[in-house]
Write a protein that binds this DNA or RNA. Structure first.
Length: 344
DNA sequence: TTGACTCCAGTGCATGAGGA
DNA sequence: TCCTCATGCACTGGAGTCAA
């Protein structure tokens, strides 16, 4: 894109007064519409791309998340919000680490300080931020304290001198989110503080405890470039084991359908130890199920990255194929699922 | 309503085979 | 000898069922 811009903008007849680009968004200021059309035509001609144009309304236009106002003859900037913005953010009463909620406030305030070109506009944006945060269950006193602290830091930033501190040694710990996360974090930090000392006394240890959601993990697994395509190494699937021993070989419904989010190999190993297929082979055929047999007679029916979808697929497959090994018979010799309501 | 029980699925650790 | 991978075993936890 830079090569295209260099070529087009070097021509004086299409050169705009102002040209800013971020990835695929371009902001230009031109003297009239014909200049804009000439610039657009040249960019399309050189790049082979198609451009769409959005004109300013009452000398106002948004670029990225900045609202630019040129009505007074000068540019004034403020934070831009889409008309569809419903002003929702991480809820202040939600069960998540306090630093995440602090991060929401910080992000809002930093954006106001960065984008607003004058203090009245900053003040106006801060009032709006307060309202949004209060609507999302944040405590007003805490909001005020945080805003005050961030604004003070922003003002005093230039006057601070750099101290001669040592290095920061970062330690990362992946934890699981529970209602007692504060006690856990506190205990962990105490353990590190008591037992770990940097080699150089001027260095300091910084502990970062983070919580990885299953969604993130599944995305990492889904996008894994080294994904092995052999059936035994695949995960998140619905599988079908067909019993080919004795009379079962002639019965199409003699099988077992299950799901697994771990690898198929791992799940089949578990079946050798316990579960429907192993029990069926032992009781119906009086033999032990071998790994070779279970691997050779198992096929993949469906795949899904979402667990709920996987469970639904398994239910549909069981409904369609009615595998005999899945049927759970109780002491009365009836199917538990089809007994109907009990009389009390 | 509650606790015992069963089945299924997942995880951690140990072990052995095979290849570099 | 070391590393990787597959496998076995033990354990945990969720969900459903059943009887007291």
């Amino acid at each position: 894109m830079s090569a295209v811009e260099n070529e087009v903008l070097s021509e004086s007849r299409v050169k705009p007064n102002l040209y800013c680009r971020y990835v695929d968004d371009i902001l230009v200021e031109v003297s009239d519409m014909s200049s804009l059309q000439r610039l657009k035509a040249r960019l399309e001609e050189v790049s082979g791309l198609s451009f769409t144009v959005e004109e300013s309304v009452a000398n106002k236009i948004s670029f990225l998340d900045v609202s630019i106002d040129a009505a007074s003859g000068n540019f004034t900037t403020s934070v831009y919000r889409k008309p569809t913005d419903n002003e929702r953010c991480l809820n202040g009463g939600s069960e998540c680490p306090q630093r995440y909620k602090d991060g929401v406030v910080r992000a809002y305030v930093h954006r106001a300080l960065r984008h607003c070109s004058s203090w009245p506009l900053v003040h106006q944006e801060l009032q709006r931020i307060k309202q949004v945060l209060v609507n999302n269950d944040y405590d007003l006193t805490t909001i005020d304290q945080q805003i005050q602290s961030i604004v003070n830091n922003h003002i005093n930033k230039g006057s601070q001198t750099t101290s001669n501190e040592g290095n920061v040694i970062s330690l990362y710990y992946k934890s699981q989110m529970t209602s007692g996360y504060r006690a856990e974090e506190s205990a962990l930090k105490n353990i590190i503080r008591r037992n770990c000392k940097p080699v150089h006394p001027e260095d300091r240890i910084k502990i970062s405890i983070y919580y990885q959601s299953p969604t993130t993990t599944s995305l990492i697994m889904k996008n894994n470039m080294a994904n092995d395509k052999s059936p035994l190494k695949q995960s998140n699937l619905v599988y079908h084991f067909k019993c080919n021993k004795g009379d079962c070989a002639l019965l199409p419904s003699s099988g077992y359908i299950g799901l697994t989010t771990t690898t198929l190999s791992r799940r089949l190993t578990m079946h050798l130890q316990s579960g429907g297929p192993q029990q069926h082979t032992q009781t119906e055929h009086q033999t032990l199920l071998t790994r070779r047999e279970i691997v050779d007679n198992t096929s993949i029916l469906a795949r899904a990255s979402d667990w709920r979808r996987l469970a639904a697929l398994e239910a549909i497959m069981i409904r369609e194929k009615d595998p005999a090994i899945n049927r759970q018979i109780n002491a009365r010799g009836t199917l538990q699922l089809y007994e109907g309501r009990r009389l009390t």
